[in-house]
């Protein structure tokens, strides 16, 4: 069924770049998304992702690179969200909702104030994988490298804090620092994903491949590697389908991933019942 896609892939560099971008995004999703799933911080990640629009809007208004603005805003909102959850845990829900919405509002405002702006907002929100340039790929690869190196270096610390914060503190681990570090890595991942699926759909790509992987492994390390593979596969399928049907790329990838998650969950439940 995908013959047309594979032939086109050989012919069109933009399609090759789109596919490579989707793979690079899947590596980040596997490494960081697995921690988001086991630590159950999907909502926090959502807050961070949406607040990023604020930074992009401000950067655009100032005539700077919006992706640089996104990176700064993401790290800033990760630290803000982290500080909120560490300090006012009981109001966490409300405060993260506020950061989520206010960040987006700032973005919308500054984009509106920027003269000459027309269609970029949609691509920030929903991504535009077919417009990925060579420079974007290098940037994504660099961020991937950074993420993988950070996870490898701090692996046992991240696992310990994700598993049992209280015991980690008892062992003298710097729990707050490790936790904030994890949120910053989530933020960097979000920026990496924006180009592919846009910041509204980020959460699905961040969590679903890892959630599928969790059905088939009993080790976090295995979950990370497996979810990278699952992400690469599903993103490739999604891209192929979107190309053939002329559907929006990010949305198609998300729908394919969502369907895979649904099927995997049903299988998982059925297997357990037996």
């Amino acid at each position: 069924m995908n013959e047309g896609f594979w032939t086109a892939l050989l012919a069109f560099p933009f399609l090759q770049r789109a596919l490579i971008a989707a793979w690079l995004a899947s590596i980040a999703c596997g490494a960081i998304g697995s921690f988001v799933v086991v630590k159950r911080i999907g909502f926090l990640a959502g807050g961070i992702a949406h607040a990023v629009l604020g930074g992009m809007g401000i950067a655009l208004y100032l005539g700077l690179d919006p992706m640089a603005g996104a990176l700064v805003a993401a790290v800033f909102s990760a630290l803000l969200v982290g500080w909120v959850t560490l300090t006012w845990r009981e109001y966490e829900d409300t405060l993260i909702s506020a950061i989520w919405a206010v960040g987006m509002a700032i973005g919308v405002l500054f984009i509106a104030l920027t003269p000459g702006y027309d269609k970029d907002l949609m691509s920030y929100l929903f991504g535009n994988v077919l417009l990925v340039g060579a420079r974007d790929l290098w940037r994504m690869a660099a961020l991937d490298l950074l993420l993988v190196a950070a996870v490898a270096l701090g692996y046992r610390q991240f696992v310990a804090v994700a598993f049992d914060e209280h015991f980690a503190a008892q062992r003298g681990l710097r729990v707050r620092l490790v936790y904030l570090g994890l949120l910053v890595l989530v933020a960097i991942t979000v920026v990496l994903l924006i180009q592919i699926v846009g910041l509204i759909l980020v959460i699905a790509l961040l969590t679903l491949p890892s959630a599928i992987a969790a059905h088939y492994t009993r080790r976090l390390g295995g979950m990370i590697l497996l979810s990278m593979g699952i992400g690469v596969t599903l993103a490739s399928i999604g891209l192929a389908v979107s190309f053939q049907r002329d559907w929006p790329g990010g949305a198609t990838i998300i729908i394919v991933t969502g369907l895979a998650y649904l099927m995997s969950t049903l299988l998982h439940v059925a297997r357990r019942r037996r």
Binding site: G154, R156, D164, F167, A168, G172
Partner: peptide, 12 residues
């Protein structure tokens, strides 16, 4: 094994 962790435990 987590009971052997210290703040200096890096890598896997």
């Amino acid at each position: 094994l987590m009971g052997r962790l210290t703040p200096r435990s890096l890598l896997f």
